[in-house]
Design a protein around this nucleic acid. Structure first.
Lengths: 192, 192
DNA sequence: TGTATTATTGAGTATGCACTCAGTAATAGA
DNA sequence: TCTATTACTGAGTGCATACTCAATAATACA
């Protein structure tokens, strides 16, 4: 190999894409502008990503990985289910508030036709440990046993998203929303 | 007025747009194709909607109105809170399952940059009665009183969406998901 | 240091698409 | 029935933009 690609340039392109996608939407953000903001020529963008769709798919995986990292780092494996779930909940909420652009882009990506099934699968791979935790909790009868696993994990995501939305429009109530949201979630999934 | 516009044509355009937006995404669906599928010339599309963005905004309002109709028709105003909520829940879930294209388009519209604030406001207007019901329920101490109104309504939408997603990928479990989802929601918002 | 290989550049190209407009057809009102 | 007004048509236009490519620069390796 003579002259390797630069990880920095790749990241600069992904960063610029994140900014522009968040501001203008996936299709309204031209590759010319993305490369300009990344500080590279337009042609360079296409040596790192064969097509714009490729860039979109790569960005999706990147953001999902970041989110999984944020949620699962320092994960208290030894603590009880409630503590572990609360950990994941707080990390997710905090990530969303700290990274509004990535979150906005993620929302667009998830409904985008450009996203391949492979990317979707790759995107959920980093969350397997979380899925396993929920499965265990159901088996250990911590949760109501009439709820399917997927409903629980989807609900967590859905309620976190609702919590973040509210927090973004009323930052001073952040703590109340985060606590209230989790208590609601917990009450919903545990046995009466 | 000489030669009025045709309500039928307008609807045909909105229908074709719904189909194409669902299949290809908002930006990948050209006005030429939309008008062709609607059975009108491309120019005609622009007499009904000044721009493509206009069409997008009109479609958003239309779908939101349909959804609100589906949720609030036969609304049992005299029954207790749980029954009323369950009514809304079931109607929403059923609408989503019966109208996957509209639902998919709605998801795209909600994160679209083309959508104006006015359209967003207009889109939530038909749901005021629902909001009022929740406010009443909190005041009557049916719900936990530490939850903000917005969190409850957002959560209902979020949990319904999760429920529909699951049902779509596993139709035979429809009833279990719908019941389980609602019980989870109800347990989450009511007092212990 | 020399060379093969690959990254980088940015002007250029080809395509696709939103929107226009001049000609035509339909309809409401007189 | 006549006329003014507006809808309808679809070929045409201009612009935006994803992607290419020939020339050049940088780097790994011998």
């Amino acid at each position: 190999m003579a002259r390797p690609k630069s990880e920095d340039k790749r990241n600069a392109i992904l960063d610029a894409a994140t900014r522009l996608f968040a501001e203008r939407g996936l299709t309204a953000a031209p590759t010319s502008e993305i490369s300009k903001q990344a500080g590279v020529a337009e042609g360079t963008l296409f040596t790192y990503f064969k097509t714009k769709d490729d860039l979109i798919n790569a960005l999706y995986r990147e953001i999902k990985l970041e989110l999984a990292d944020a949620m699962m780092s320092d994960f208290p494996r030894k603590k009880n289910v409630r503590t572990r779930l609360r950990h994941v909940w707080d990390r997710y909420v905090n990530w969303g508030i700290a990274n509004p652009k990535q979150r906005k882009v993620l929302a667009q990506l998830q409904v985008s036709e450009a996203l391949t099934k492979e990317s979707r699968d790759a995107g959920s791979a980093p969350f397997v440990e979380f899925q396993i935790m929920i499965r265990d909790a159901i088996e250990q009868r911590v949760f109501r046993n009439d709820l399917p696993v997927e409903l629980i994990s989807k609900s967590l995501a859905a309620l976190v998203e609702a919590t973040i939305d509210l927090t973004m429009s009323n930052r001073s109530e952040a703590k109340q929303y985060r606590d209230g949201g989790f208590q609601m979630f917990w009450a919903g999934i545990t046995k009466a």
